[in-house]
Amino acid sequence: MQHPTPADIQRVREFLLDLQARICSALEQQEQKNGSTVQFNADHWTRPEGGGGISRVIQDGEVIEKGGVMFSHIDITKLPASATERHPDIAGAQAQAMGVSVVIHPKNPNVPTSHANVRLFIAEPEGKAPIWWFGGGFDLTPFYPNDSDILAWHQKAHDLCAPFGDTLYAKHKQWCDDYFYLKHRDEQRGVGGLFFDDLNCWDFEKCFEYIQAVGNGYLEAILAIFKNNQDKAYTEAQRDFQLYRRGRYVEYNLVYDRGTLFGLQTGGRIESILVSLPNLAAWSYRPVWDEQSPEKRLVDYYLKPRDWLTELSN
Rank of each mutant, 00 (worst) to 15 (best):
I90E: 03
R47P: 06
S72D: 02
M1C: 08
A162M: 15
T141M: 10
M70S: 08
G165S: 02
D203W: 08
Q212K: 13
W308A: 05
Y252Q: 09
N34D: 09
F208L: 03
Q230L: 08
Y234L: 05
F204P: 00
K183S: 14
G67D: 02
A129C: 07
Q265G: 15
A21S: 14
N253P: 14
T77S: 15
Q188G: 01
P125C: 02
H158M: 13
L312M: 07
E295F: 05
G136S: 08
E205A: 08
Q188S: 11
L120E: 00
A213D: 00
F15A: 03
P287H: 11
D257H: 14
A170L: 11
M70E: 00
W132A: 04
D149N: 12
G92N: 04
C201T: 11
R13I: 07
E65N: 12
G217Q: 02
A213L: 00
W289T: 06
V103E: 00
I273E: 04
G68V: 09
R47D: 08
V288E: 12
Q174D: 04
V100F: 07
E209L: 05
A224F: 01
V118S: 01
R297E: 09
G92A: 05
V288K: 13
W289V: 08
Y144K: 04
L261G: 11
F196T: 04
P294A: 11
V250W: 02
M70A: 00
V288N: 08
C176R: 02
A162S: 13
S36W: 05
P109H: 05
T46F: 12
Y244K: 12
T235V: 05
L277S: 08
H87E: 10
E126F: 12
K304M: 11
F241W: 06
G92M: 09
L280T: 10
P278T: 07
I23V: 11
L309H: 08
G99Y: 10
K227Y: 05
D147Y: 14
I9H: 06
F134W: 00
L17N: 09
Y210D: 00
P88D: 09
Q20D: 01
R13V: 06
V118R: 01
Q94C: 14
Y181D: 00
G137Q: 06
A233K: 13
K33Q: 15
V250C: 11
L19T: 03
I270E: 06
G127L: 00
F71S: 04
R47Q: 10
L277M: 10
P112Y: 00
S114D: 05
R185Q: 14
G92W: 09
T310M: 12
F15M: 09
D186Y: 13
K107A: 14
K171L: 12
R246G: 03
V102F: 09
I74C: 04
A282G: 09
A170F: 04
R22S: 11
V250F: 02
R86F: 06
E126I: 10
K296N: 15
I104F: 07
A83C: 15
A281W: 14
V69C: 11
